[in-house]
Design a protein around this nucleic acid. Sequence first.
DNA 1: CGTATAATTGATTTTTGTCAAGGCTCGTGG
DNA 2: CCACGAGCCTTGACAAAAATCAATTATACG
Lengths: 268, 268
Amino acid sequence: MPRRVRRHLFLPADCRLCALHDAAICAPLGGGEIARMHGYKAGNRTVEQGDDIIRQGEPCSELYTLLDGWAMVYQDLANGRRQVLDFALPGALLGFRPNLEAPPVHSVQALTDASMCVFPRARFLALVREQPEVGLRLAWMTARDHFLAQEHLTNLGRRNAAERIAYLLLEIYLRAARTWPAAGGSIAMPLTQEHLGDALGLTAVHVNRTLGRLRRQGLLELGGRTLVVRDAEALAALAGFEPEALHRQIGDDALARGHLGQVARQVV
Amino acid sequence: MPRRVRRHLFLPADCRLCALHDAAICAPLGGGEIARMHGYKAGNRTVEQGDDIIRQGEPCSELYTLLDGWAMVYQDLANGRRQVLDFALPGALLGFRPNLEAPPVHSVQALTDASMCVFPRARFLALVREQPEVGLRLAWMTARDHFLAQEHLTNLGRRNAAERIAYLLLEIYLRAARTWPAAGGSIAMPLTQEHLGDALGLTAVHVNRTLGRLRRQGLLELGGRTLVVRDAEALAALAGFEPEALHRQIGDDALARGHLGQVARQVV
DNA sequence: CGTATAATTGATTTTTGTCAAGGCTCGTGG
DNA sequence: CCACGAGCCTTGACAAAAATCAATTATACG
């Protein structure tokens, strides 16, 4: 059972100083508007590793932008099984769902100490309402998350254990390396083998054996909260992973280049 | 190999006569605006069973609202495997993705003869731009599809063959029964056992055996393009399926009741 | 240190896939 | 009207993948 949520709430930070800007929901906002952003926020909050940020079934009237740290979105089933739906990195919007009035259906847990930007639901909606380009950004971010979920669906449905692991770790590597530039294929990564199993529909034991095989083949290294990608080419070939296709669809520039992005800017 | 796309293009139908209105992207539009909707459409189109509506990798500059019939969204992998990502029913928006400029990554195939409402990409974006409430509707529909994809992820990751089948068929039953009211737990359903397998990460053979077991237990009947749910309670218990939770999140009324829905209306 | 969490390994069972062969149904063309 | 073929469903025998059960062995941390 994850420990209870600890709340350390700070005054709103000045959004103009936020390094994350381009990666978050507020990306379309320009200088003048960003200065007024703090009016929509309740402030910043930090949580400790292991804390639940959102708990399925418990009313939650806030949305969050993850500012720093890792989180996981997951679902607990009645029979004790757990499915990890997504790993969230800085910039991720947490708590958005089709019916914001109903309690959340998924939990979100901090995998490291983490900090986030807190939006009360009503103010978040006001923001979306008053800044149409933010609404489009919201649609784009949701479409991106949907696309990633579909990729994971393919991963679970049509790949075996080794392929699934290779695919997930490559994806995580690329996403993390974009946030915290990586040296020599190595990134800090807090996921345990049990997390990987819960995300991939495998048991931790089977993840362990399969990881061992990949390690012995010289494809990767994993341990001590560190992931080292030794042979990205081979991993990609094994998993049928196409970085370009992924990037074309959800890359940073997709919003800037894509039509939806153009709309987002034109609407301003 | 699915046969080539046949195109029968008709003049735009009058959107005021469209029975689907509430279920589609245009739901937030009122009387005056709906009358101008045809200005954004290229027209209606019909396709035959087995036709590909969208093909992954082939440029496609249109979006569609499915008006009648069934479709499937799927992905072909390099090694010949296939993953079904979603089954689409009337009202579904087809072809929306994070980067509309890049070719689609998923294919969409008609599972019955089908008809749809065609939007050229540029005009679709103009609609979203000029009618902010349509933008919010787009965000909501995408969030709904994302939520469903996450449910499917849990289904593949943490349920065995019988549970997966029970879950999927119940979901399909409920969705179809909302579109075409069902009598005695029976609906017309064009999915083959191979379709189910490709959606559930199982082989058609294993689907067959498992379906047989469910049939012998008196839980359901499936054949002749007809699905009969004999014991919905037992199926739901087996699958851990909670219709209320699903409905609370994505039910028809969720938009009307939910805050996002309120926004959608207030923005007008 | 001592405890808790995470990783590892072996033996065994269960679930699912693979290969192969027939059977059923329905529409088409002779 | 019947024969044929395509697509789909069904079943059996066997193989492979993954889960389960059960210890151990690191590793991290107060």
